[in-house]
Amino acid sequence: MAKITYTDQQGNSKTLDVENGLSVMEGAIQNDVPGIDADCGGSMACATCHVYVEEKWLDKLPKAEEGEVDMIDMAFEPKKNSRLSCQIIVTDELDGLKVTTPEKQS
């Protein structure tokens, strides 16, 4: 279990307890967090679960695989700290993770 904070571009934020094994995307979808669409359902095929990860967490997350980076090319306004939230799997180590959702997903 980890506390994950989702913040939108207006600064509204929601902190949730997300079970280990779920993705950061699933944590958002199951709790109606707006700003994450996840059109493809987590198969790394659409880039609509794109989030910006708080800088200090970037190195603590397992590195994005090539397919994820390729998909981020398609995302809305990608930055250095861009990740697909469907590819970040929650573990105890991620307790306190903060992500920001982009202005829009497509």
């Binding site: 059109d39 659409c46 880039a47 398609m74 497509s106």
Partner: peptide, 9 residues
């Protein structure tokens, strides 16, 4: 020319 893939609407 912009080629950023497709979105579903």
């Amino acid at each position: 020319l912009s080629f950023f893939g497709l979105v579903m609407k």
